[in-house]
Amino acid sequence: MDITTLKSKKSLIWWTVIFTIFILLIFLPFYTQGYAVVLLISILVYVILTLSWVMFSGSTGYMSLAPAAFFGVGIYTSALIGKVFPFPITVLVGGMASFILAILVGALTLRLKGIYFAIFTFGLVMLIAYSLLFFEIQVTGTRGRFVIVMDYNTIYFYMLGIFMLLLLTTYLIKNSKYGLALRSIGQEEDAAAHTGVNVVGVKVMTFAISAFFMGAVGSVMATKLTYIDPFIAFSTTYSFMPVAMAIFGGTGSLYGPIIGAAILTYLEEILITKFAEVYMLIFGAILVAAILYLPDGLVGFIQKIWRRLMERNHVDT
């Protein structure tokens, strides 16, 4: 058989699978009881954060520990203007606020290399959290704020919408010349610059686009939290979890981060209420094990085994 028809047949199957999953996800709230929706919301939050993180850090190799900053900006946007504007506007503003913050941060810091960038982005989250706490206590006189409440189905549909948009954006970037530029930056930044790639521009723009989605999902998440304060909104957990989930799932493909986030969030959901310490302990152990033994993540590992099985079958026949 011709290789191209084989390829297009394969991608046709893929698209059918993806389409079916989305149809199922859209109709899910109409035929299940509350818990499945709540669980899927938690999974979607981390899936969106992880995929957004991979969009920038996975290809460029710049390890950003700033997801919590952008997520938190989204949460606060929702707390500040959620009661005034229609909700879609709030989500959009939350995303744009993070987008703008990311452009500022990116323009300042993306010349920092390696570990410095990771440290800086980590410090940024804490700086915002402590400054905001000081401001809230001194100026507004309260520590936290209440956010408008929405029902779970509505939250779910917003999350699903953001997820679909993110998936589409990631897919388009990956298959465009900018995706190629990002990978070239990750592998040999100097050579990319001398081959005509505006490295700073591409980096800052991608960083900002990924921040948009983190901010948007933050402003939806706020309505689920209902009450927030600077340390709830800017919790470093939201910076580290996406990184760990991406590493666990594998950053080489689109579905690696999704699978990684889904599995770990599910684990969190079943363990955290009763055995919070045990969950965190297992989480730490999984992270260390993944770094040691799954250099290409779970998905890379499965692909490797799959390939080996296929080869063996070939030999047998």
Binding site: K177, L180, A181, R183, S184, Q187, E188, D190, A191, A192, H194, T195, G196, V197, N198
Partner: peptide, 25 residues
């Protein structure tokens, strides 16, 4: 355009994509 004394190719990209990058940008 330039080349480098110690080669700076994009190691994990296919040869073809290495060249394509130049055409794109």
């Amino acid at each position: 355009a330039r080349t480098f004394q110690i080669v700076k190719i994009f190691p994990d990209l296919p040869v073809f994509s290495n060249v394509l990058l130049g055409l794109h940008f």
